[in-house]
Amino acid sequence: MSTGAAEAAWQPSELELSRRSVRRRASTRSVVIALISTVVFAGVIGLALVGSPGWAVVQQTFFNLEIGIESFPAILAGLWVNIQVLVVAAIGVAVFGTLLAVLRSLRGPVFFPLRALATGYTDLFRGMPLLIVLYLVGFGIPVLDIFPRLPAVVWGTIAIILTYSAYVAEVLRAGMEAVHPSQRMAARSLGLTHAQTLRIVVIPQGIRKVVPALMNDFVSMQKDVGLISVLGAVDAVRAAQIEVAQSFNFTPYVVAGLLFVAISWPMIRLTDWASARLAAREQSGGVV
C-alpha cells in the first residue's frame, strides 16, 4: 500500500531524536537509583537482623541448613499431596461455583427456592472460617456413618471445595452481571433460550471480566490446601510438623513455607500479568 511506502521513507526528526535521548538518559538514571536504593535497603535490614542479640539462636532454630536438607524429601512428598488436592479442588470449585452462580442469577418466581438456597449457601460459607468447615466436615460427617470410611484428604478436599465455591460463585455472578443487558437482548432476539444465552453469551463474557479475581482466589486456595493437615492428612505442613517434633527445630516449617511460595509464585506473577494486559487493552494505549 502507498501508506506503507511513505512509512518506510519516514525518518524521525531532530526534535524527536533529541526527545528520545532525553528519555533514555532519564530511564538509565532511574534504573541506577533503584539499584542503589535496593542494595542499601537490603543491607540495612540484613545488618539489623544479623546484628540483633538473638540472631544466633534464630538462625539455629529456623534456618538450620542441615535439618532443612534432611527434612526436605518428606516435606516434598507431602507437598505432592497438596498439589493433588489443589487440582481436584480447583475442578470441583469451577463446577460447583458456576452452578451456584447460575442458580443465584435465575429469574422468575418458580426458581425462588433454588435462588434462596444458593444465596443462603454463599452467605453461610463466606462467613464461616475455613478451619471450622474443615473440622465440621472432616470430623462431623464421618460420624454420621452413612458414607464409607474415607481418608482425611478426601474430607479436606470437600471442605475446601465447599468454602471456595461460595467465593468463586460470587465473583462469577459479579462478572455475569457486568455483561451488558443488550448482549442478553441480542441473544434472546435470535431465539436462544435463557439457558443457551447464559451458556453461550453471558458466562463466557462474564468469566473474562473476572479472570484476575478468579486467579487471586486460586492463589489463595493454593496455600489454604495446607490446612487439611488439621484433619491428620500427611501433607507438606503435617510432614513438616512431624519433622519438627523429631528434631525440636523449626526449620522444616520454613522449608514447607518456602515450598508453598514456590508453587504459588508462578500463578501470582501470571495474575499480575493478566491484570496488566487487561488494563492495557481496555485503555487502548495512552501514557496515563
Binding site: 443488550s182 448482549q183 437482548m185 434472546r188 432476539s189 435470535l190 431465539g191 463474557q205
Partner: peptide
C-alpha cells in the same frame, strides 16, 4: 423463543457478541 426465532432484529448498537 420460537416466536423470536421467526423474527430478525438489528439494533442501533449492533450488539455483536
Amino acid at each position: 423463543d420460537r416466536v423470536r426465532a421467526r423474527i430478525g432484529v438489528v439494533f442501533q448498537h449492533f450488539n455483536l457478541f
